[in-house]
């Protein structure tokens, strides 16, 4: 899919350029765009380093743990079949908290741990359980507080107000998370009742 998309942009581009008589532009663009991409990354280095530096301070100060405490009631609501003291719930909460803070690298180990624990509760080991589906829905649609990388790109591109998109991002991730979790809730109630009905 990824390969297909990338290749069709370039192959399609070359064919269309040949048709439109713009083939010399293609060569020029190929060379210029490659170096332009590198320049952008150089501008990004400082901002990425700054943000990950400050997040490391937050992580060591235990902010993920703090946020996890706040999110506990929500997690109980979303994962009714996971016992409240089960380690799965803790790992899920830590993963989502790290996600909210934009700590992608810190989130993954918690996420894999959560899957491992959920698998222990799963009656059919080759098929995703309800809790797993809910967890992945929450994870992939998770609210982001600060989209730091894209703010860095905006600074590098000389934006007059690079952070003006923060509010909009919270709004967009918020609606996505609420709607996706609602859909998950209806999905599982619908399928459970049908499943039981057949039995």
């Amino acid at each position: 899919m990824l390969n297909l998309l990338w290749v069709s942009l370039i192959l399609g581009g070359i064919l269309i350029a040949a048709w439109n008589g713009r083939i010399s532009l293609v060569t020029e663009t190929l060379f210029n765009s490659a170096s332009e991409a590198v320049y952008v990354c150089f501008d990004l280095i400082g901002l990425m380093a700054l943000w990950l530096g400050i997040l490391e301070v937050a992580r060591e100060a235990g902010l993920v743990r703090f946020l996890a405490k706040l999110m506990r009631p929500l997690a109980r609501l979303l994962f009714p079949e996971v016992p409240p003291e089960h380690p799965a719930l803790g790992a899920i909460i830590m993963n989502l908290s790290a996600n909210v803070l934009g700590l992608g690298n810190a989130a993954t180990p918690f996420g894999l741990k959560a899957m491992e624990e959920l698998q222990k509760l799963n009656p059919r080991p080759d098929t995703a359980s309800d809790a797993m589906c809910t967890f992945l829905t929450a994870n992939t649609s998770c609210v982001t507080l600060i989209p730091a990388t894209i703010i860095g790109v905006r600074v590098a591109a000389g934006s007059r107000n690079p952070v003006e998109i923060v509010g909009a991002t919270i709004f967009a991730t918020g609606t996505a998370m609420v709607l996706a979790l609602t859909a998950d809730y209806f999905w599982r109630t619908f399928f459970r009742s049908r499943f039981w009905g057949r039995k």
Binding site: Q119, A128, M132, L136, T137, S141, L179, D184
Partner: peptide
Amino acid sequence: IYFGSVGIRHYRHALALGLFADLVS
């Protein structure tokens, strides 16, 4: 990555919901 790590082959509605979330966002 997540399903692969515990050997789950049937994703059920997880993928559909993830893509739905992307569309909503």
